[in-house]
Design a protein around this nucleic acid. Structure first.
Length: 158
DNA sequence: GCCAACGTTGGC
DNA sequence: GCCAACGTTGGC
């Protein structure tokens, strides 16, 4: 099966790529996603080993800062059952959980972050979901060729 | 902090 | 099923 590539957004003030590196096994459950399209990607299409671009949103500047990978099969997001969690969903039940997630593991920090500005200025990368005006999707599929370009741009001498 | 874009909710 | 109101995202 062809390898799939993804981009996930995170606000560095909430959870940065350095925070991910600091986790045990450099891995965390990608919890709190409450958007059906993003959930469907995790539940139906992500596979262990898929490459993931880690994007800092609401940052200055915003951009891709690291490479990660999918590190688990999908499973129910435990925070949907926790009344005190921001992602608590009273309409979900343990019998038929509404929200699924995967684990994400850090692979490496990019020597040079690839800013949204550079992505938008690139003749091919400008077609990425994250470059779309008004794009709010927190998990999006990435063309493998685009991922390779982003990684190349993220090398120090480029 | 502003505000455009977008998703969700709920009245009808 | 429509759509206005509302809340959130996220660039700037």
């Amino acid at each position: 099966m062809a390898r799939r590539c993804w981009l996930v957004k995170s606000e560095p003030g909430t959870f940065s790529f350095d925070d991910l590196l600091a986790e045990p096994e450099r891995t965390t459950a990608w919890d709190g996603v409450r958007n059906y399209q993003a959930r469907n990607f995790m539940r139906d299409e992500m596979r262990v080993g898929d490459q993931v671009l880690f994007y800092h949103s609401n940052a200055s500047p915003p951009g891709v800062v690291g490479l990660a990978e999918v590190a688990s099969e999908p499973y129910p997001d435990p925070t949907q059952f926790e009344p005190d969690a921001p992602g608590y969903d009273p309409k979900s039940s343990r019998e038929t959980p509404r929200w699924q997630l995967v684990d994400v593991r850090a692979v490496r920090t990019l020597p040079r972050m690839v800013t949204l500005e550079r992505i938008k200025a690139h003749p091919e990368l400008r077609h990425m979901e994250v470059a779309r005006r008004g794009s709010r999707l927190s998990i999006s599929p990435v063309d493998p060729a685009h991922l390779e370009i982003v990684l190349a741009l993220g090398e120090a001498a480029c």
